[in-house]
Computed example of a mutant assay.
Amino acid sequence: MKPLTESKSTSTNLKEILKSYPLTSFFVMAYLFSWTVLIPFILSQWNIIPKTKIFDVFFTLNAFVGPMVAAYIMIWTLEGKEAWKVFRKGIWKFKVGLKWYFFALIVIPTVIYLGFVIFNGGIPTFNGLTTQFYATYPIYLVIVFFGGGPFPEEIGWRGFALPRMQSKFGALKATLLLGILWAIWHLPHFLTAAQRGGPGSNISLLYYNLPIFIVLCLATSIILTWVFNSKQGNLFIVMLVHASLNMFGLIQPYLTNPALKETDLPVSLGLGLCALIILIFTNGNLGYKQSSPEVELGN
């Protein structure tokens, strides 16, 4: 058994590391926690352990125990318990204006649909979409918001990391770097059906699907950074935009053109056009205004 003084010394040293390298520490924890909890899900996908629905919970948990828990640890360590309480309450700021709800719920699906129109060379058709699906759309949206990634992920990516990265690198560089790091965080997903991987998949995942997915993450990051900066760091609307984007994944299987189901290229195309427009109209600064006074945020 280790002496109490040695345990305290180890804890103190760990805190000093976290404080000295907050961004590096956050991303290391986000990756480590998420990738570890995904192992049972990946093993079940490859039939190394029984493939049962119970292992699907580990896929949902990977966003919660990764970026969200990492953000919780870092905020608590850097600023204390009360800072986390303030941060948590700040998530639920619903008064963002109707135009932002319109952007999240109408514009985002529209630009994604435009990407499918362009990729398809005309209006795509759907098979099996019923009025029941549209009637239950709000319910699905809530489920995706909390369980599909937007809520736990954005606490970490845009809640903790982005403000510190923007202060260090500026808006555009921070956004592109975060987009790449976000894409890397998803790498284990390519071993599963979530990114068209798993048994029967081939090397095209790496030379075709992965580059397209990276472009998708970069375009999405530009859009989310602009929303975040435009609403003075409002995480709720960022999460809602993220959820609205993810919702198209529920509609994509109903497309009659098989080519539209097998790639993220149409989504990347639509969101890429939206991101390009944002870059042009914001002169590349994505609505960022340097906070004052300057805070030393570390690496």
Rank of each mutant, 00 (worst) to 15 (best):
P258R: 08
S292E: 12
A259L: 14
D264S: 10
P163K: 11
F213V: 04
L176T: 03
T36E: 07
L260Y: 04
P199I: 10
A30N: 09
G148K: 05
G198E: 10
I48C: 12
H186G: 08
F26V: 00
F213C: 00
K8A: 15
M29H: 08
F190C: 08
Y288R: 11
K231P: 07
T24R: 07
Y113G: 01
L210W: 14
G233F: 09
I143E: 07
M165S: 00
F169P: 00
V107L: 13
Q290P: 05
A30I: 08
G122W: 06
N127S: 14
T125L: 11
L177W: 10
I203P: 01
M1R: 15
F281I: 12
S44E: 04
N127W: 09
L273N: 01
K81S: 14
L43T: 01
F145Y: 15
R164K: 15
V227I: 14
S230A: 15
D264I: 02
S230I: 07
L205A: 02
L240G: 02
T12I: 12
F248H: 11
K19I: 14
M165Q: 01
M29T: 02
L38E: 05
I42D: 04
L18Q: 11
L98G: 12
V96S: 15
A161G: 03
Y288F: 14
G233N: 12
Q195W: 07
L187S: 11
K168L: 06
F59G: 09
K168E: 03
F58C: 05
L61A: 15
T52G: 06
Y21A: 09
F236V: 05
N257M: 07
L172P: 06
Y101N: 13
I280F: 06
W100P: 01
A219Y: 00
V65N: 10
E153D: 09
M247G: 03
A275E: 01
Y72S: 01
P293V: 10
N299Q: 12
I91F: 15
C274L: 14
R88H: 13
P138Q: 12
L286K: 07
F103I: 12
L141K: 03
Y140K: 12
F126T: 13
P188E: 11
Q252T: 13
F145H: 05
V111T: 05
R164V: 00
W35F: 09
L235H: 08
L218I: 04
I39L: 14
L218M: 03
G147H: 10
L269R: 03
K15R: 15
L181V: 00
V295G: 11
K261G: 06
T110S: 10
V28G: 11
R88P: 02
I75H: 08
N13K: 15
Q45S: 11
I184Q: 08
E296R: 14
V144M: 13
I143P: 03
P152V: 05
L276D: 00
I251Y: 13
G298C: 06
K53A: 13
L178D: 01
I123D: 04
E79S: 12
S244K: 07
L177M: 14
G149F: 06
L187N: 12
P258I: 03
T60I: 15
T10H: 12
F248R: 04
N62Y: 15
F169V: 00
G156V: 03
Y207M: 07
L224R: 10
K289A: 13
I155Y: 13
L162R: 11
F160A: 01
L129A: 04
A161I: 01
T175C: 00
Y288A: 05
T225H: 05
L218Y: 02
L279C: 03
V117I: 15
F133M: 15
E16I: 12
S221T: 05
